[in-house]
């Protein structure tokens, strides 16, 4: 009788030593799984809208503004009464970055860039352009969004 009872208990606990390390493993993995799958880190891009102060700037300042017109297939840069376009191709990012660096080197005081965005531009393309403007080596910290009144 006694033998039977003890032998039964042994059988019921046979899985326990295997379960404990598995449980441990999942316990350790749990926070990492939660962090990577459920919580996705989000960041933001801040866009500024033109203020009354900036709109009342002198004509000399207006000439020094860098205006980027973002179109579906190209970006037009307007700076110091000159305008030139960069077509969307494989080298687009590099070309735009180089042009912006040139402008920045010619006038390090300029910290903001104005963006005009065409209706047909995809949102991802706009974010890519903002990314290039804000790159540390380019250094346009403020993105001013110019809305066109229809």
């Amino acid at each position: 009788m006694l033998y039977k009872r003890f032998s039964k208990n042994k059988k019921s606990t046979i899985l326990l030593p295997i379960l404990i390390p598995v449980m441990n493993l999942f316990l350790v993995l749990l926070p990492f799984v939660l962090e990577t799958s459920l919580l996705q880190q989000l960041t933001t891009h801040e866009i500024t809208l033109p203020s009354l102060k900036s709109s009342s700037s002198t004509s000399a300042n207006v000439k020094k503004d860098v205006v980027l017109s973002v179109m579906k297939d190209y970006v037009m840069i307007d700076y110091e009464n000159n305008s030139w376009r960069i077509n969307l191709d494989d080298q687009f990012n590099k070309k735009l970055e180089n042009e912006l660096i040139k402008i920045r080197n010619s006038n390090p005081e300029i910290k903001s860039i104005q963006l005009k965005v065409d209706n047909n531009v995809t949102y991802q393309f706009l974010i890519d352009v903002i990314d290039i403007c804000k790159r540390s080596n380019v250094g346009f910290e403020e993105i001013v969004y110019i809305d066109e009144v229809n």
Binding site: T43, T44, Q124, D131
Partner: peptide
């Protein structure tokens, strides 16, 4: 599907 970016400014 949010756009991808290199921005590191956290949402506040």
């Amino acid at each position: 599907d949010l756009p991808y970016s290199k921005s590191r400014i956290p949402i506040s």
